Simulated scan of single mutants.
Amino acid sequence: MNPYDKAHELARALTNSEELTSLIEAKNLIDQSPDDRLLIEHFRQKQMEMSSHQMQGTEPNDDQKAEWAKLVTEVNGKPNLTRYLEAEGRVGQLMQDINRILATPFEALNDTNNE
């Protein structure tokens, strides 16, 4: 069994998966609306800023928190954006699951290092 052949088979399965198909459809809807596209870009930018605070162990100031809350509310009020974010989350979960499965054969290496 050739791992490269199986990797290509997995890539084809992912391409045809419901998760990826839904994400592509949702992204296409957003791409048709300049307002939605700008809003999701702004959301991503603020999301990174909030994550940066969390990683640094700092608290965002009250204005930043208020802006983030307002932005989340605005995004949640747009069905195409919530659909996109939900689809993106499902694809992310799928990839995490696949990575966990692919890492299984290498667990034996960790076990031998701890003996």
Results as ranks from 00 to 15, higher is better:
78 K>Q: 09
89 G>M: 14
74 E>V: 08
60 P>F: 06
54 Q>L: 11
61 N>Q: 05
97 D>K: 13
77 G>A: 06
64 Q>M: 14
89 G>N: 15
74 E>A: 12
71 L>S: 13
65 K>S: 13
62 D>Y: 10
61 N>Y: 04
76 N>M: 07
70 K>S: 15
58 T>D: 03
100 R>T: 12
85 L>S: 06
57 G>K: 01
61 N>W: 05
86 E>D: 13
91 V>E: 08
66 A>Y: 10
84 Y>E: 01
86 E>S: 14
67 E>Y: 07
82 T>E: 02
80 N>D: 08
64 Q>P: 07
59 E>H: 09
58 T>F: 02
74 E>K: 15
69 A>I: 03
79 P>T: 05
100 R>P: 02
99 N>C: 00
67 E>R: 10
68 W>R: 01
85 L>E: 02
96 Q>P: 00
81 L>W: 01
79 P>V: 06
82 T>S: 12
78 K>A: 03
91 V>P: 08
57 G>D: 04
84 Y>Q: 01
74 E>R: 14
83 R>M: 14
90 R>P: 03
74 E>L: 13
62 D>Q: 15
58 T>L: 09
69 A>D: 12
61 N>C: 04
59 E>K: 11
78 K>L: 01
99 N>V: 00
84 Y>W: 10
93 Q>S: 11
66 A>C: 05
91 V>Y: 07
83 R>H: 14
86 E>Q: 13
61 N>A: 05
59 E>R: 11
75 V>C: 09
66 A>I: 03
63 D>N: 13
85 L>C: 09
77 G>D: 06
71 L>K: 12
57 G>P: 02
60 P>K: 03
67 E>K: 11
78 K>I: 08
76 N>R: 14
92 G>F: 05
67 E>S: 10
77 G>L: 07
61 N>I: 05
73 T>A: 13
78 K>T: 07
66 A>G: 08
100 R>D: 11
60 P>G: 07
70 K>R: 15
94 L>G: 05
74 E>Y: 07
91 V>T: 09
84 Y>G: 00
64 Q>D: 13
67 E>Q: 12
95 M>Q: 09
83 R>N: 15
